[in-house]
Simulated scan of single mutants.
Amino acid sequence: MSVFSRYRIVIPVLNQLRYTRQGVESLIEHGVAPGDILVIDNASTDDTPRWLADTPALRSVHNRVNLGCGGAWAQGAFLCGDADWVVLLNNDILSGPRAIDTMLDAAEREGLKVVSPALLEGDDDYGFATFAPDYQRRMAGTVRRGWFHGVCFAVHRSVFEQIGFPDTDRRLGGHEDIEFLVRCLRSGLPVGTVGDAVLHHFGSITQKAIKQETGAKTLGDRHYFYSRLGLGWLGRKRFKLQRERQRERWSREEMAQHGSSLHMLRSGSRWRPV
């Protein structure tokens, strides 16, 4: 493909075909061309390889070994050099109205180089398909500057040229998004999360499955992650406290203005702002 596309979507997967198929169908329903989706199969052992082979409209890569999330992100970003934006996306999502296009429209309006959509997480016992349009109207124009999340973040290709690809170190497991966020912030890159687009996220389905299968409580080394950021014990405490205070401030202001926040958790048929 010699002509630049506005975006390509990279979806790393490891088994969990039901969620992958559901997420892909949701994206296509909301305006994404199948050829703009690249599925990175990290050595799935279920029917994922067969489904991808039977769905030639999608681009896909099958890895013989699990490269991890960061490895798949970097691989996908490298393979999508023909796009202005690379959207790194979890497989266990549902798309709100034209979520990818409206997210990028907002990023370009706000001058952001990395951008995430609003996020509704948990069980879809509230009817996301009917809830999302009204939520999106209420939250349009709302921006959390200085934060994006790992469920979905779109990276302008100039960012990769400036700071490189996501880290492929497997010991970062579960922290690759924060590592990339910190690199962006330290480089002065404008990043944010916007209310003009929304996704439903079922909640780290693949990570939970790996933990259940292996018996591991965590997939990464938290202390190693902080050491990679150059943070000792006191630095870690300050980093976590600053993030928590900023999150609470954003949530409080958004709830007061809109009655919702840009990150909501669904539990026990009730919402909790994050």
Results as ranks from 00 to 15, higher is better:
residue 5 S to M: 06
residue 7 Y to W: 13
residue 7 Y to E: 08
residue 11 I to T: 09
residue 11 I to L: 08
residue 13 V to R: 04
residue 13 V to T: 15
residue 14 L to S: 02
residue 15 N to F: 02
residue 16 Q to I: 06
residue 16 Q to F: 00
residue 22 Q to I: 11
residue 26 S to G: 15
residue 28 I to H: 07
residue 29 E to R: 15
residue 31 G to Q: 07
residue 34 P to C: 08
residue 34 P to S: 09
residue 36 D to A: 14
residue 39 V to C: 01
residue 39 V to D: 00
residue 40 I to S: 01
residue 41 D to S: 12
residue 43 A to M: 02
residue 44 S to V: 09
residue 47 D to Q: 15
residue 49 P to W: 00
residue 51 W to N: 01
residue 59 R to G: 12
residue 63 N to G: 10
residue 63 N to F: 09
residue 64 R to A: 14
residue 70 G to M: 06
residue 71 G to C: 13
residue 72 A to R: 00
residue 77 A to E: 00
residue 77 A to I: 01
residue 79 L to V: 11
residue 81 G to C: 08
residue 86 V to D: 05
residue 87 V to M: 11
residue 88 L to K: 05
residue 89 L to F: 03
residue 89 L to Q: 02
residue 89 L to T: 04
residue 94 L to M: 14
residue 96 G to Y: 04
residue 99 A to G: 08
residue 100 I to L: 07
residue 101 D to K: 08
residue 101 D to L: 05
residue 103 M to T: 08
residue 104 L to M: 13
residue 105 D to L: 11
residue 109 R to F: 10
residue 110 E to K: 08
residue 110 E to D: 12
residue 111 G to E: 11
residue 112 L to G: 08
residue 116 S to H: 07
residue 116 S to I: 02
residue 129 A to F: 02
residue 129 A to L: 07
residue 129 A to P: 04
residue 130 T to P: 10
residue 131 F to K: 07
residue 133 P to R: 09
residue 137 R to E: 12
residue 138 R to G: 01
residue 140 A to H: 06
residue 144 R to W: 03
residue 149 H to F: 05
residue 150 G to I: 01
residue 151 V to G: 06
residue 152 C to A: 14
residue 154 A to H: 03
residue 154 A to M: 03
residue 156 H to P: 04
residue 157 R to A: 11
residue 160 F to M: 01
residue 161 E to L: 10
residue 162 Q to F: 06
residue 163 I to C: 05
residue 166 P to Y: 01
residue 167 D to C: 13
residue 168 T to K: 11
residue 168 T to M: 10
residue 169 D to P: 12
residue 171 R to L: 10
residue 172 L to Q: 02
residue 173 G to D: 03
residue 174 G to V: 00
residue 178 I to A: 03
residue 180 F to H: 07
residue 182 V to S: 02
residue 183 R to A: 15
residue 183 R to E: 13
residue 184 C to W: 01
residue 186 R to K: 15
residue 188 G to T: 10
residue 191 V to K: 00
residue 191 V to A: 05
residue 192 G to I: 00
residue 194 V to K: 00
residue 198 V to L: 05
residue 199 L to Y: 03
residue 202 F to P: 04
residue 206 T to V: 13
residue 208 K to Q: 11
residue 209 A to V: 04
residue 209 A to F: 02
residue 210 I to F: 05
residue 210 I to C: 07
residue 211 K to R: 14
residue 211 K to F: 01
residue 213 E to Q: 15
residue 214 T to E: 07
residue 215 G to L: 10
residue 216 A to S: 09
residue 217 K to P: 08
residue 220 G to D: 03
residue 225 F to E: 04
residue 230 G to H: 05
residue 232 G to L: 04
residue 233 W to C: 10
residue 235 G to N: 10
residue 236 R to I: 07
residue 236 R to W: 09
residue 239 F to C: 12
residue 243 R to K: 14
residue 243 R to T: 10
residue 245 R to E: 13
residue 246 Q to G: 10
residue 247 R to I: 11
residue 249 R to A: 12
residue 250 W to N: 01
residue 250 W to F: 14
residue 251 S to E: 05
residue 252 R to H: 08
residue 252 R to L: 12
residue 254 E to F: 04
residue 254 E to R: 06
residue 255 M to K: 11
residue 255 M to C: 14
residue 257 Q to N: 12
residue 259 G to N: 13
residue 261 S to L: 00
residue 262 L to I: 09
residue 263 H to E: 02
residue 264 M to D: 01
residue 264 M to F: 06
residue 270 R to M: 14
residue 272 R to H: 14
residue 272 R to D: 02
residue 273 P to H: 07
residue 274 V to A: 07
